[in-house]
Simulated scan of single mutants.
Amino acid sequence: MTGTIDTILSRRSVREFKEKEIDDVVVEQILEAGRWAPSGLNNQPWRFMVIKSNNTIEKLSKLTHYTDVVKNAPLLIAIFLDQDSSYNYVKDVQAIGAAIQNMLLASVELGTGSVWLGEILNQKEKVNEVLDAPSSLELMAIIAIGYPVEKDRTSARKPLEELVYYEKYSLKKNE
């Protein structure tokens, strides 16, 4: 396997980052990958907020159990659902999940590491206050991004036999 499949299989959540800023060109490429995710009716319901300010990162770090992950990331991207452009909540949330996955995979390709932070959603109103986000934006996740501290990162997955069901069908016609 090569290319996309290798990237998918090698992606791991990175929670420890080097003290090194992310170049704006890399940030733009990650955002571009998110922008190209599929969405129903091509409504592109996502909005991204790039967060680099140490002051803002510090405030956000206090709104999650993953304080150190957030505090040590040189870059955060908050992903929102723009309720003004939403036409179907479930489809739009799924589209945002695709945008997030695109950004996580782009991060790997660009030599950075990232982690999808969902627990911070428990404080989404406070996050919106810190970010001064318009009320029409609903926080969906924050991605912490940085250059990964070198270490082994392993992950296990359940076997396909535990995850996949096949429809019942007959090999004989007309049965």
Rank of each mutant, 00 (worst) to 15 (best):
T154Y: 11
D68C: 05
K18I: 00
Y89H: 11
G34D: 04
L137G: 09
K59I: 04
R47I: 07
A144H: 05
L163H: 05
R157N: 12
R153M: 10
P74S: 01
L31I: 10
F48V: 15
Q44A: 02
D82M: 03
D132V: 08
A144R: 05
N42E: 03
T112H: 01
L137T: 07
K168A: 08
G111S: 03
W46M: 03
E21D: 08
K20T: 04
E21N: 05
K18C: 00
E175H: 12
N88T: 05
V130S: 09
L9G: 04
S61A: 15
V14F: 05
F48E: 15
S13R: 02
A133K: 13
G3Y: 13
H65P: 09
T67V: 08
K62C: 11
W116C: 02
K91H: 07
S53G: 12
I96Q: 01
A78K: 08
T67N: 14
N128V: 02
E16Y: 14
E119N: 11
E167L: 09
A99D: 00
L76V: 05
M49D: 10
Y166A: 07
K71L: 14
R35L: 14
L160N: 07
V69P: 06
P38D: 00
L110N: 01
E58S: 12
L139P: 09
